[in-house]
């Protein structure tokens, strides 16, 4: 009986507490830099597309909302011909970002993506691609990968020794 009265009193005292509600459209909540919101495709510091169209994000995606098509430019550099994310299916799990070997696909702290038409939730590459490097300003996949593309031969990547000349090993 006493506990009931004490509960009533304690709840009543909450009338004088500060309210925790954030009045959304006027006040915005702070979203951390790691927040999993709208997905973007970033570029490397040289301004080239980071995505190498490896399909790993599409495979990792639990709801299959990423569609892309790989292609190659004249220098042998792979990139996606189209890259499409259907945000009406995306669950913002961030698995795509985890799977990506090049830091190309990144989730950002933006959540205001409401649309009246479902079709508008399908983002194409021109909607996804941003002009900067996103969360990893210095990373450049092609500069550290040991793959040969136009303008960069084997052994020219950072922290990569030149390939061994097999003939010089002959006695």
């Amino acid at each position: 009986m006493l506990s009931i009265i004490r509960t009533l009193w304690d709840v009543f005292l909450h009338a004088f507490r500060k309210r925790v509600t954030i009045q959304y459209p006027e006040q915005k909540a702070y979203l951390s830099a790691r927040y999993r919101g709208r997905i973007i495709l970033s570029r490397d510091p040289e301004g080239g597309e980071r995505c190498v169209a490896c399909y790993l994000c599409a495979v990792a995606c639990p709801v299959d909302c990423i569609a892309l098509q790989a292609t190659e430019d004249s220098t042998g550099r792979r990139y996606p011909e189209f890259f499409r994310i259907n945000f009406s299916r995306c669950i913002f799990c961030g698995y795509c970002e985890e799977a990506c070997p090049t830091y190309a696909i990144q989730l950002t702290p933006d959540i205001e993506m409401g649309e009246y038409s479902r079709q508008n939730m399908v983002y194409e590459k021109e909607h996804l691609l941003i002009s900067g490097p996103g969360k990893y300003p210095d990373y450049n996949f092609w500069r550290v990968a040991g793959v040969k593309i136009g303008g960069k031969d084997k052994g020219q990547a950072e922290r990569e020794a030149p390939p061994t000349d097999l003939r010089s090993l002959l006695p």
Binding site: V11, F12, H14, A15, R17, K18, R19, V20, T21, Q23
Partner: peptide, 8 residues
């Protein structure tokens, strides 16, 4: 109810 649950 909201007042007593620290809401609006």
């Amino acid at each position: 109810l909201a007042l007593w649950q620290d809401r609006y």
